[in-house]
Amino acid sequence: MTFKAIINGKTLKGETTTEAVDAATAEKVFKQYFNDNGLDGEWTYDDATKTFTVTE
């Protein structure tokens, strides 16, 4: 399945996608990506659209 992340950061904005077997796996991938890029913020997840949003 394809999962999307919308990034609303102070220094980084945009979208990225990942292929994962479930939402928990996708969340781990996205959180690692955000940690690697120095992002920290509020997380939400919309199961209907398979979209994570992080707002810094």
Rank of each mutant, 00 (worst) to 15 (best):
residue 14 G to H: 14
residue 24 A to L: 10
residue 54 V to T: 02
residue 6 I to W: 04
residue 25 T to R: 06
residue 10 K to R: 12
residue 40 D to W: 14
residue 53 T to I: 09
residue 50 K to G: 04
residue 23 A to F: 10
residue 44 T to F: 10
residue 47 D to C: 06
residue 42 E to P: 05
residue 12 L to E: 09
residue 44 T to K: 08
residue 36 D to S: 09
residue 27 E to T: 04
residue 1 M to V: 12
residue 40 D to G: 10
residue 16 T to V: 15
residue 17 T to M: 09
residue 42 E to W: 10
residue 36 D to N: 09
residue 14 G to T: 13
residue 1 M to S: 09
residue 22 D to R: 01
residue 13 K to P: 04
residue 56 E to S: 08
residue 11 T to Y: 13
residue 13 K to E: 06
residue 50 K to F: 09
residue 46 D to Q: 03
residue 41 G to C: 09
residue 54 V to K: 02
residue 21 V to H: 11
residue 54 V to A: 03
residue 40 D to N: 12
residue 48 A to N: 12
residue 24 A to I: 09
residue 1 M to Y: 14
residue 10 K to H: 12
residue 37 N to V: 14
residue 5 A to K: 01
residue 1 M to N: 09
residue 42 E to Q: 11
residue 4 K to W: 11
residue 18 T to Q: 04
residue 30 F to S: 00
residue 31 K to R: 14
residue 39 L to F: 14
residue 31 K to M: 08
residue 34 F to V: 13
residue 28 K to R: 12
residue 37 N to Q: 14
residue 39 L to W: 15
residue 36 D to Y: 09
residue 5 A to D: 03
residue 30 F to G: 00
residue 45 Y to L: 02
residue 18 T to R: 05
residue 55 T to C: 05
residue 37 N to P: 04
residue 21 V to T: 11
residue 6 I to G: 01
residue 39 L to R: 04
residue 36 D to F: 10
residue 23 A to E: 05
residue 4 K to A: 04
residue 37 N to G: 06
residue 17 T to L: 09
residue 31 K to F: 04
residue 16 T to W: 15
residue 33 Y to I: 08
residue 5 A to H: 02
residue 23 A to G: 03
residue 56 E to I: 15
residue 23 A to Q: 08
residue 21 V to C: 10
residue 17 T to Y: 14
residue 27 E to D: 00
residue 12 L to R: 07
residue 35 N to F: 14
residue 18 T to Y: 08
residue 21 V to K: 12
residue 27 E to L: 15
residue 42 E to M: 10
residue 26 A to L: 02
residue 33 Y to G: 01
residue 20 A to D: 01
residue 33 Y to S: 03
residue 34 F to E: 00
residue 25 T to V: 06
residue 55 T to H: 08
residue 35 N to K: 15
residue 56 E to R: 06
residue 22 D to E: 03
residue 18 T to F: 15
residue 16 T to R: 14
residue 20 A to S: 05
residue 45 Y to I: 01
residue 3 F to E: 02
residue 21 V to D: 09
residue 52 F to A: 00
residue 30 F to K: 00
residue 8 N to G: 04
residue 55 T to S: 08
